[in-house]
């Protein structure tokens, strides 16, 4: 008799406990700062692309989800400092397992991952993201390439630039969720 009351008491008390349910679509929780979400191709502060088209990410990818094709920069048409740039860049999100090996392989920190994860689509081909979708948006003080190098005489000046949060992705707090860690600081 007493045991039954005890049981009902527990049920009754549970009504007043805090609900653990996350109300996802209305109230989206921010992921961890180093979450492996959608990729992003970063830019230098003047708007030139960091990707040099070396294909190391494509070689590192265990699922062969990345396709890169480089092309030569010319003085008239410059997309990145240095000799080459990634002219075609595609990531197949239906192959990508989000392991981050491409991020580790990238020599110029051009490729990083964002916190965006809402990628579901009803077309297999639309889930192959092209360069236009992957490249970081231009901020106010950036200029759309092609344009000449503004921040130094040679590509070496670009590679040794002092990295700050401001010259990576525009507003890091917005792009990377809350917290001071940006995708750029990812080792």
């Amino acid at each position: 008799m007493l045991d039954a009351l005890k049981g009902f008491g527990l049920t009754f008390r549970s009504q007043f406990r805090k609900v653990t349910t996350e109300l996802y679509p209305e109230d989206t929780k921010v992921t961890a700062p180093r979450y492996h979400g959608r990729h992003q191709l970063n830019r230098y502060p003047d708007g030139l692309e960091k990707c040099i088209g070396c294909e190391l990410c494509a070689w590192a990818c265990p699922a062969d989800a990345i396709y890169v094709e480089g092309a030569d920069n010319t003085e008239q048409e410059r997309y990145s400092p240095g000799e080459r740039y990634g002219r075609i860049y595609q990531i197949n999100y239906l192959r990508c397992i989000g392991c981050g090996l491409c991020i580790e392989a990238c020599p110029t920190r051009a490729l990083t991952m964002t916190n965006e994860y809402e990628l579901a689509d009803d077309s297999r081909q639309d889930l192959i993201f092209t360069k236009e979708q992957l490249v970081a948006p231009l901020t106010a003080d950036m200029e759309a390439p092609p344009h000449p190098m503004r921040l130094g005489e040679t590509d070496q000046d670009y590679y040794t630039l002092e990295y700050t949060l401001e010259n990576t992705l525009g507003d890091p707090a917005e792009a990377q969720g809350s917290g001071p860690t940006s995708g750029e600081a990812h080792p």
Binding site: Y93, L94, Y117, A120
Partner: peptide, 29 residues
């Protein structure tokens, strides 16, 4: 190589594995 070889698929959800939010996003879409 893709379950759409066997049955028609209405929604593809990337991720390995997708987090529950991603599944809910796909379901809502």
């Amino acid at each position: 190589q893709g379950v759409d070889h066997i049955v028609p698929v209405d929604m593809y959800l990337p991720g390995c594995p997708p987090r529950p939010e991603m599944l809910m996003d796909a379901i809502l879409k």
